Computed example of a mutant assay.
Amino acid sequence: MTSFKAFVSEKVGEKEFSTSIQTKQISDLPEGEVLVKVAYSSLNYKDALSALGKPGVTKNYPHTPGIDASGTVVSSKSSDFKEGDEVIVTSYDLGMNTWGGFSEYIQVPAAWVIPMPAGLDLKSSMMMGTAGLTAAMSVYKLIDKVSPNDGNVLVTGATGGVGSIAVSILNKLGYAVVTVTGKADKVDYLKGIGAAEVISREAFLEGSERPLLKPQFAGVIDTVGGNFLATAIKATNPLGVVTCCGNAASFDLPLNVFPFILRGVSLIGIDSQNFPREERIKVWENVGKDWLPNNLDEISEEVSLEGLNDKINAIFKGQVSGRVLVKL
């Protein structure tokens, strides 16, 4: 019987959780059509929430987090996959209430599994991971309506995983990218990954209580929500497009209808968890063809399962920039 290592979070008190690396057996895995030997995963904000037992992500413990994984098929009950296939598994319920990617093996439904597209490999696909896929989905929806000639595109939360990759992809596609940050020491980092302009948080939010602001952006990719999203919408050009995918600032949206009825601004929500499979495959193929950021090595750092705890604590303190790659 094959034994392997997994990162496990356990409830040890009413509101207290501990994590450890444990030895597990294949028989411990949940039922699934495809058994995958995991090569890489990545650390996302949702993984940190799950690992520390924060409400709203995982209901039952003990639990292995990790909302994404890349690896090689060991066995499959589905004709779509065979032993030796390299695959990507992201989103759906992986790592939330189903055994996740912080494990040397996972077993999942075939519908969750994506064939590795040309141009990507096990490592680069997880340098992207769920954060990169979310960024690519946001770009996918935005560029359908906004071209590089239409004007600047704003990215909020640009030092985070989703924001960093969104900036890089947009820059690669020829867009002039404006970013917002409250971290003065990250200006050079943001310009290095493709930002044409960096606005301070204070300057961006100045006057944000007004019902409309001067139009500045042809499009927006928002990753933080709250007043940042509201301010961005108010400053979007007529017929501009705004995508939103996060709520780190707030899940409330303090906004009036003027941007929508006076400027025709479109707001598009990005749900990476349940994004349709066919479109998901298409987005991954775009990444493999020409959307893959040139600077993934620069915005990624690699840790083992043993190094996860430090990064989980750091992500809550806002001390993680770019992507954290987990090597299994």
Rank of each mutant, 00 (worst) to 15 (best):
F4H: 14
K11S: 05
E16F: 09
S20T: 12
I21N: 13
Q22A: 05
D28R: 14
E31R: 13
G32V: 02
G32P: 02
A39E: 13
N44V: 00
V57H: 11
T58K: 12
T58H: 09
K59I: 01
Y61M: 07
T64D: 12
G66L: 01
I67E: 03
T72M: 10
S75G: 08
F81C: 00
K82F: 00
E86Y: 02
N97M: 04
F102M: 15
E104D: 08
E104N: 10
Y105K: 13
I106S: 05
I106D: 03
Q107R: 13
V113C: 04
P117G: 09
L120W: 10
L120P: 00
D121L: 01
S124K: 15
M126D: 06
G129E: 02
A131C: 06
S138G: 08
Y140F: 07
K141G: 03
S147G: 09
D150P: 01
G151E: 04
N152P: 05
N152R: 13
V153S: 09
V155E: 05
T156F: 02
V162P: 08
G163M: 07
G163K: 15
S164G: 05
S168Y: 02
V177A: 11
K183G: 02
D185S: 11
D185V: 01
L190E: 05
I193W: 11
I193E: 07
G194Q: 08
V198N: 14
V198I: 07
R201V: 02
E206V: 01
S208Q: 12
P211L: 04
L212I: 15
L213V: 05
P215Y: 01
A218W: 10
A218V: 02
G219V: 01
G225D: 01
A232K: 15
A232F: 01
T243M: 03
S250D: 03
D252G: 09
N256R: 15
V257Y: 15
P259C: 07
F260W: 12
I261T: 15
V265S: 13
E278K: 13
W284G: 01
G288A: 09
G288C: 05
E298T: 15
S300A: 04
S304T: 13
G307K: 15
V320K: 11
L325P: 06
K327G: 03
L328Q: 12
